[in-house]
Structure formats: C-alpha cells, structure tokens
Amino acid sequence: MRIAGLTALAAGALVLPAVLAPAASAEVEDITISAWGNSEIPVACDYVNANCTVMARMFGSDYALPATLTINGQELTSAERLDYPDRERSALRGIWRPPAKGTYTIVATQGSSTKTLVVEITGDPQLGSGSAGLLPSGSS
C-alpha cells in the first residue's frame, strides 16, 4: 500500500509542472493572397500562372516559433520569414504560380494555431477571370 501511495505522489509531481507551465502564445492572424495587374494595382489571384504573393502573419509572445505555409499539402518553398521582434510579430511571404484551374487550400500553421484560405483558380493564363477568386474559411 505504501508503494502505491508513493507511486501516485510521484505521478502527481510529474503532472504538476505541465499544468503550471505557461501556454505558448503564438497565433496565425491571417492569410492574404494577391497578384499584380498591369497598372501596379493588386488584383485577385484567380488565373493560371499568375504571379501571386501569399502572406501569412503571426503574432504573440512566441511569434518566433517555427511556422509553415502549405498549398494543397505542399510546402511553399519560396516563402521567406520576416520577424518584427519589437511588435512580437512575424510573417511568411512567398510567390506562388497556380499551375491549373481548380480549388487550392492554403494553410498557415504556427504551434497549435492554424488558419486556412481556399482559393478558386478559374481564369485562363492570359485573360484572368475578373472575379474575386477567394473563398475564405476561418478555421483556427
């Protein structure tokens, strides 16, 4: 009986630090995507082979935690990390060229925080479609 009591006490001592440890404070704020039109004005990224800029912004005291940006499950390899320590913020920014018409799911993750943006590519490479092209979904 005495061994069982010591085992329970030891197990409780191991759980206590985990309960008292502060929670990580890093959160994905948003994901944006845009392309540049002929007049240097951002336009919807809704056509095949558009030069789209994808950006995910993060914030919180743990803003420097590793973050990922994926499109249909594949990491955006052009993404560069931008850190703003004085504001406890960071961002991932990269260029993406949609290879074909269809639906693409962009996911930004940092720690346990995740945001999702669904993009519908509907236009031909030269013409574009002129539509908004974005269907935001707010998972967290």
Rank of each mutant, 00 (worst) to 15 (best):
G102K: 05
M1Q: 10
G37Q: 15
L14K: 02
L69P: 00
A4D: 12
A100F: 11
G133M: 10
S137D: 10
A4I: 08
A35N: 12
G5M: 08
K101V: 08
A100V: 10
A26H: 10
Y63C: 00
G94M: 03
T32N: 08
A132Q: 13
P22T: 01
Q110C: 03
R87E: 14
T114P: 02
A8N: 07
A24V: 00
R89N: 05
G130W: 12
A11F: 06
M55P: 01
A108E: 06
G12R: 01
D83T: 12
I121T: 12
R57T: 09
T68Y: 06
A56F: 06
A24T: 00
T32V: 05
Y47P: 01
L20G: 03
A10R: 05
Y63T: 00
R57P: 01
S113K: 09
A132P: 00
I31N: 04
T116N: 03
G60A: 14
G133S: 08
V107Q: 14
Y47L: 04
S113H: 12
M1N: 09
I31V: 05
M55G: 02
L82D: 13
L20E: 08
I95T: 09
M58L: 13
N51V: 10
A67M: 07
L20M: 11
N38V: 06
P85Y: 12
T109D: 09
S78M: 03
Q110P: 01
P85M: 05
G111P: 04
V119M: 09
T68P: 03
A26F: 04
E40N: 15
S34I: 07
P98N: 12
W36N: 13
Y104V: 00
G73D: 02
W96D: 01
E120F: 05
A44C: 02
R2G: 00
A79M: 03
N38M: 10
R81P: 04
V48Y: 11
G130K: 09
P66S: 09
V107H: 08
D83V: 11
E40R: 15
L127S: 12
G111D: 11
V48F: 10
G111R: 11
R81N: 11
S34F: 15
L20F: 10
M58Q: 12
R57M: 08
L76T: 02
E75M: 10
S129F: 09
A50D: 15
L127R: 13
G12M: 01
V107Y: 11
T7E: 12
P98Q: 15
L127P: 00
V118S: 07
S139Y: 13
L135G: 01
I3Q: 11
D46T: 11
D83H: 10
D86G: 05
A91D: 00
E27K: 09
T68A: 06
I31H: 09
L6K: 13
S90K: 04
T114N: 10
N51Q: 14
A79N: 04
S61L: 14
Q74A: 10
